[in-house]
Design a protein around this nucleic acid. Structure first.
Lengths: 348, 348
DNA sequence: ATGAAAGCGCTAACAG
DNA sequence: CTGTTAGCGCTTTCAT
């Protein structure tokens, strides 16, 4: 059952039948109707997308590489909200999102076969891309345009980021103004090794993922030298809780903990509660992202809010621009401080 | 830059060049290497998937329709864990997942254009499918095989479900055995209208979504007539909290609340804490799904555990079977009771 | 407004 | 083991 069959049934040429479906050219209303009727009669469901794709040289597919195991990536609202904004923007452009699992944690793991050979007009790399990223290399070889989210701004690669350094500085200044001096920091992963625990100076110097590095730099910008830098293997509540238990159960505990994500901050708040510490009377906790965390009630995190959905939408716009042959652009979205209930003056 | 160019460069025929890449036929190691070298030399990144797809009549794409707005669907671990299991199973089969937004809440909303015209070899419908579902109609018209997850078992349609009725009965019996008699139930949505609040008998009779109906039937199977049935618009913590506040702040409050999902149950637990009620001393709360909810610590929900990842994997298996021309199968996965810290005897 | 023809890039018979 | 041939189903000039 092909367009040719329908054309025959309607006694028109294939090209005319094509026009009846696509509307991309002049056709008499009556002829069009005749073709559509013939299609209905034969049970033809419309032009086969495979034929169209080959002819047009476009698949209509945007490959989205989530920078983590899917199960973990999906547990992070930061990723899913961006995805949502992206899908929403891509829909009207007749583009679909193909989910591509990112590189595993195992340093020997290879790029996903989908990235190697699936049809895609553009690829989006979510999270933590560096210049020599194997995924980037693969895509370059295939000459597939790329949009990077939250990675380095690489020359010739479109990217969307946020001003996390300034956002983190703002959060930190808020704590400094409240009078805190003993401030600890709970960070996102440093690299694919995903270590866990307090990091020494050497390890901090070797941070590979830009996002972690930039947010840490925000503390310094606010004039704060953290009393401890605690590295986590992923932005998840349980890792924040582990960090909180470690940082808050010692003798010289910090009066404030700045976290590089809200999920981590939520974990620290939960750890504090477990330890019988009042937030913010005994310890202040701040996050980053601006997530809506109803289960943390009655607390509301002090955090740097980033426009997640807008980020996804911006990615969609860049995809559109690349597809139209535009130059790769780099955009940075703003971040703003939201003061919640989890920060206050340090204990006397 | 096509296979023909590479073939010319290597002085072989196109078909031989094709074999060099696909390995789907006999070819001399030396010839093969010559082709590969020619490809490298020309910067050819491998066969264009669009050509392959048209020729094979397969796109290698599985469309996954998430039965909800994407942002909301992604906030539900039940959906994301199934997706994860599915992607994991599909990967080795060289199949990719195309995300298709489901029908919106607006009853007039149309099927997503991707479902109408994107290339896909099989479609997976997540959540709440009924026989006259417009999405199912569209797919049937396009003659695309379908796997339904958590919907009705429809004749001629492959599906994967769980034994939720028995699971819910088991949870309820656990409460009955503890001595509870005043038991309320917080349910998943009844239909696309997504009402919120205590439902009267007429409304309960009109439940459209099978999953909600089946889990409710589990209570009856355990001999329990709930003192109140509270309908929520989505399986999210905030809706569970709203339900909890409503059910637990009245004078004749129930001694136990059975929820149709863990996220809803978590919300009820949080509402109880807010109201100063101890769980389980003042009120017992049970859920359904068996999620890992670290932020609910120190509580661990009593719940019916369903094998989520395995569910995704089973979907992947059915997809494979359909693609191989197999008959549409229907599978039901088991559910088992997990007793946590949120249920205990009723207050004296 | 319609039709004829070319070809997108590839793979799979089949012949040699 | 390699080459020849014939499309997969569609869209798009270009004529008419």
């Amino acid at each position: 059952m092909t367009l040719a069959d329908v054309a025959a049934q309607a006694s028109v040429s294939v090209s005319t039948a094509s026009l009846a479906f696509s509307g991309a050219g002049p056709i008499a209303a009556e002829t069009r109707q005749r073709v559509l009727d013939a299609a209905t009669e034969l049970g033809y469901a419309g032009p086969n997308p495979l034929g169209r794709q080959l002819r047009r040289g476009r698949s209509g597919i945007v490959g989205v590489v989530v920078g983590d195991a899917l199960a973990r990536a999906f547990r992070d609202p930061v990723t899913t909200q961006v995805l949502d904004g992206l899908v929403t923007t891509l829909g009207p452009q007749d583009l679909g999102v193909l989910l591509v699992p990112g590189l595993g944690d195992d340093p020997t793991s290879a790029v996903d076969p989908l990235l190697e050979s699936a049809a895609m007009d553009v690829a989006v790399l979510l999270w933590g891309v560096t210049a020599d990223d194997p995924e980037l290399v693969t895509l370059r070889r295939r000459a597939i345009p790329v949009v990077v989210v939250e990675g380095q701004h690489l020359p010739g690669v479109a990217s969307v980021g946020i001003d996390d350094r300034a956002g983190m500085a703002e959060v930190t200044r808020h704590l400094v103004e409240l009078g805190h001096t003993r401030i600890a920091c709970v960070t996102l992963p440093f690299d694919r090794s995903r270590g866990e625990g307090v990091a020494d100076a050497a390890r901090v110097d070797g941070i590979v993922w830009e996002i972690t590095r930039r947010r840490l730099a925000g503390l310094a910008d606010a004039g704060v030298e953290p009393v401890a830098v605690y590295e986590t293997p992923a932005s998840l509540v349980e890792h924040g809780a582990a960090a909180g238990r470690a940082l808050l159960s010692g003798p010289d505990r910090p009066t404030a903990v700045v976290c590089q994500s809200d999920l981590l901050a939520a974990g620290v708040v939960i750890a504090a509660r477990e330890l019988g510490l009042a937030v913010p009377q005994d310890v202040s906790v701040a996050g980053f992202d601006g997530l809506d965390l109803p289960w943390l009630a009655p607390d509301v995190l002090t955090t740097a809010v980033q426009p997640l959905t807008e980020k996804g939408e911006t990615v969609g716009l860049l995809v559109e621009s690349l597809l139209a042959g535009g130059e790769p652009e780099q955009r940075d979205l703003p971040v703003r401080l939201r003061v919640g209930t989890t920060t206050g003056p340090p204990p006397a």
